[in-house]
Design a protein around this nucleic acid. Structure first.
Lengths: 141, 141
DNA sequence: TATTATCCTATAGCAATGATAGGAAATAGC
DNA sequence: GCTATTTCCTATCATTGCTATAGGATAATA
């Protein structure tokens, strides 16, 4: 599987925060409830996003998480790459030498597939995934 | 990781058999040596390909493995799908209902990414990956 | 009958995923 | 300063899949 639930959860959180841009810090509990994700597990996912400066956390009363940049700046690829580590379809794509020796027939194919995937996901802005009109969306609390 | 070494090995074997199409049954030992892959592990990979009728095995002296159809018929996607089980970038893509409830914002994106990947790999014929002129290829025994 | 080679079953180390638990540290309002 | 809130940090754990190894049963050929 290219993208695990970790990356999918992360993307949903970023979308959630983007849809509420300008509302200040949003507590983890609220986000988790809205998305139907365990608070404790989501916490570990958000830690990664904080480490990579995609979001920032504020402790204490009135604290929570918020985006560090304008929502329109974020891409799906960026969020997924942060949490998944890599979006490469096969391992060791960076090691050209090893490929030339072990897999000369397929190297080009993997390179192109990688570019295809990364270009597609980097071309999707988080704001394109947002729903501006929340009304009529059953699952949103 | 979308494709593990299992699928990559399988593809290399199919290419190996395709490049020697018409030479009858090729013993696992020879294929493994040519590709630099452990015989025992490759055996389990080939078992999957036999189960899916992509190749057939013949026991005993003069036995080995060969393609069941003309080499030109095989696509990379077909081989990888057989060994990897699925090429879907995320789990549960077939369950539309669950997506509509849990991940309405992202469903379309995953569907399109899936189509992108599958179409690309289904469009690559194994014979396109074959090297007809084996001369000058150091790693080939 | 001997040789060759696939087929079958079982095992094991390792890493990643998905998740849970408990408590420390910081912040805001009173 | 006290209290409630909420992030931050560390540790643990069960499950799964990957990668690989081992030993022997079964079948085909000469």
């Amino acid at each position: 599987m290219l993208v695990s639930t970790k990356g999918r959860y992360a993307l949903r959180v970023i979308i959630d925060l983007a849809e509420r841009e300008g509302e200040g810090y949003l507590p983890l509990r609220d986000v988790a409830h809205r998305q139907g994700i365990s608070e404790k597990y989501l916490e570990s996912v958000l830690k990664t996003l904080v480490r990579d400066h995609l979001i920032e956390g504020m402790r204490g009363k009135g604290g929570g998480y918020r985006l560090t940049r304008p929502a329109a700046d974020y891409t799906a690829g960026e969020v997924l790459r942060a949490t998944e580590g890599s979006l490469a379809p096969v391992a060791g794509l960076d090691n050209e030498e090893a490929f030339r020796i072990e897999e000369p027939r397929c190297h080009e194919m993997w390179e192109k597939l990688d570019a295809l995937i990364e270009d597609y996901l980097d071309g999707i802005k988080v704001t394109d995934l947002c729903v501006s009109t929340l009304a009529g969306n059953d699952y949103v609390i």
